[in-house]
Design a protein around this nucleic acid. Structure first.
Lengths: 181, 181
DNA sequence: GATCATACGAAGTCCAGACTTCGTTTATCA
DNA sequence: TGATAAACGAAGTCTGGACTTCGTATGATC
């Protein structure tokens, strides 16, 4: 693969993450091309369909998040779990499509994105289990509802940071074994 | 206005709520017309644009929810608040567009839908205040974050009822002054 | 039951946006 | 530095879906 081709592919992915994040999946491929400084044809050469581009963006993002989650397995269990939860939620706001995708990536997609999503879910599961063993999170909650909360909160984009923080505090309070961190 | 015209208008609104609820706002006007048993032209005669139709659907739904919330002002404060919260969240799953709309109806819409959304928000505020005075909900939470939680939870559609119930229990636990209902 | 404004739907127009074609440019490697 | 395969973008095609036109049907009123 030629160097310029690889560079363009990378820039297209970066721009696509930003554009789809802002406008959802209804954002146009042409805008991605324009902001990436390439022609539409170049986008379609690297990704055969718009859906394939979206999927590539999601896979990259899920994998990145999973990596961050796994890196936290060294830290203090409670801090790691709640910290990652907060990170994902506050990082997500401009990533509408990401939240939407998180939502149904478990489902009909069936492709690599679903697989990457599953990887992220497992990593969150590991953080949760550790936090429960350490007594930072109630023992009677399980991954499905925790993940559902994570997805739900990460889609509540259109509120200010202050409000989001307070909402998160309520959820954390409900999750905590004793008191919210 | 002729009787058949009024009847068609009502049926179009009903069908549109169902169709937009399922497919989001990207669902086509043609599908609404077909399921309502009328021609496309009839839909556009009653609602000049697709946006106007969507707005009419939202206004009706927000007003209905507000009515339900206000009717609960007679009941036990805690039961009323948590019951309405649960009702809205579990009623919403098939109403994707509704959740999305709830989300940003406070904002750029500027029209009747934003106004109706504000009415619903006020009604929830009344329920919240009563529940706090009765000691069912913590005193240190305020409407913005509670409403944000309501919106967030109502958009987490793609999970089974069991999981949704457990996720709600966690949130309620975080909201409750003592224990979840 | 005749009139006619109201309401209807079949068959359009029009445009945005996904995807292709094809002749030109450029990185790479001998 | 020339050969060549990889990569590029301008200018298309084509489809889906929002919105219109216009001739026909029908509920309301007398």
């Amino acid at each position: 693969m030629r160097a310029d081709g690889q560079a363009n592919r990378g820039r297209i992915l970066d721009v696509a993450e930003e554009v789809f994040g802002r406008g959802g999946e209804s954002a146009s491929t042409e805008e991605v091309a324009r902001l990436a400084g390439v022609g539409i044809a170049t986008v379609f050469r690297h990704f055969p369909t718009k859906a394939a581009l979206l999927q590539a963006v999601l896979v990259r993002r899920f994998d990145r998040l999973r990596g961050q989650a796994e890196a936290l397995l060294e830290d203090d269990p409670g801090t790691a779990f709640f910290g990652f939860f907060r990170h994902l939620v506050t990082d997500a706001p401009t990533k509408i499509a990401i939240g939407d995708a998180l939502l149904d990536a478990g489902g009909d997609d069936g492709g690599e994105a679903a697989e990457a999503s599953l990887g992220l879910r497992r990593a969150v599961g590991a953080l949760l289990e550790r936090a429960q063993q350490a007594g930072a999170v109630r023992d009677d909650v399980e991954l499905p509802e925790v993940y559902a909360l994570l997805v739900a909160m990460s889609r509540a984009a259109a509120v200010d940071d202050e409000t989001k923080t307070r909402a998160l505090a309520i959820v954390f309070d409900g999750l905590a074994a004793t008191a919210a961190p």
